Computed example of a mutant assay.
Amino acid sequence: MDRPRYPNTQAIRFLRANQVDFKAFIYTYTERGGARQAAVELGLPEHRVVKTLVMETLDQSPLLVLMHGDQAVSTRNLARFIGTKKVLPVRPEKALNCTGYQVGGISPFGTRQTMPVYLQTTILDLKTIYINGGKRGFIVEVDPDVLLKTLSAIPVSVAAFSN
Score class of each variant (00 low, 15 high):
70 D>K: 01
151 L>A: 09
107 S>Q: 12
77 N>I: 02
50 V>E: 06
83 G>S: 10
128 T>W: 06
76 R>V: 09
92 P>K: 09
152 S>P: 01
84 T>K: 15
143 D>L: 04
117 V>M: 03
108 P>M: 03
100 G>F: 01
88 L>Q: 12
137 G>E: 00
103 V>Y: 03
88 L>D: 11
57 T>R: 14
106 I>V: 14
113 Q>D: 11
36 R>C: 07
154 I>H: 04
50 V>Y: 03
29 Y>I: 07
129 I>L: 10
148 L>Q: 07
147 L>K: 00
75 T>Y: 13
137 G>F: 03
69 G>C: 02
18 N>W: 11
82 I>A: 06
114 T>F: 07
126 L>H: 12
158 V>G: 06
136 R>G: 03
114 T>Y: 09
126 L>W: 05
21 D>K: 15
66 L>F: 02
11 A>Y: 01
37 Q>G: 08
77 N>Q: 15
79 A>F: 14
61 S>E: 15
132 N>F: 00
137 G>V: 02
76 R>G: 13
87 V>F: 12
114 T>W: 05
92 P>S: 07
114 T>M: 10
44 L>W: 12
71 Q>G: 09
63 L>E: 10
116 P>H: 07
83 G>W: 10
44 L>M: 12
70 D>E: 12
129 I>F: 06
17 A>E: 14
152 S>I: 01
47 H>K: 15
147 L>N: 03
10 Q>A: 15
59 D>F: 11
122 T>F: 03
126 L>T: 03
2 D>E: 13
159 A>D: 12
53 L>W: 00
150 T>S: 10
16 R>W: 05
41 E>S: 09
52 T>P: 02
29 Y>R: 07
12 I>A: 00
106 I>L: 04
90 V>M: 09
70 D>R: 00
133 G>A: 04
25 F>H: 15
132 N>Q: 06
95 A>I: 00
144 P>W: 03
114 T>R: 15
80 R>Y: 08
119 L>Q: 09
149 K>I: 07
90 V>L: 05
125 D>Y: 13
109 F>G: 07
9 T>Q: 01
100 G>H: 04
66 L>E: 08
108 P>L: 01
24 A>K: 06
31 E>H: 15
95 A>M: 05
157 S>G: 10
66 L>N: 09
152 S>D: 14
28 T>W: 02
18 N>Y: 13
24 A>S: 09
55 M>S: 11
124 L>G: 05
2 D>G: 08
116 P>L: 04
100 G>A: 02
63 L>N: 04
6 Y>M: 04
124 L>R: 05
20 V>M: 06
79 A>M: 11
149 K>H: 14
123 I>Y: 05
49 V>P: 01
83 G>H: 08
92 P>M: 10
86 K>M: 06
10 Q>N: 12
100 G>S: 06
30 T>W: 10
61 S>A: 15
48 R>K: 14
136 R>Y: 07
22 F>L: 05
140 V>C: 05
133 G>C: 02
13 R>H: 14
6 Y>G: 00
120 Q>G: 11
75 T>A: 13
101 Y>N: 08
41 E>H: 03
81 F>D: 02
72 A>V: 03
38 A>S: 13
28 T>L: 08
80 R>I: 09
117 V>K: 00
101 Y>D: 07
58 L>A: 15
34 G>P: 01
156 V>L: 06
16 R>V: 10
90 V>C: 08
139 I>Y: 01
15 L>F: 11
90 V>W: 04
78 L>F: 11
161 F>M: 14
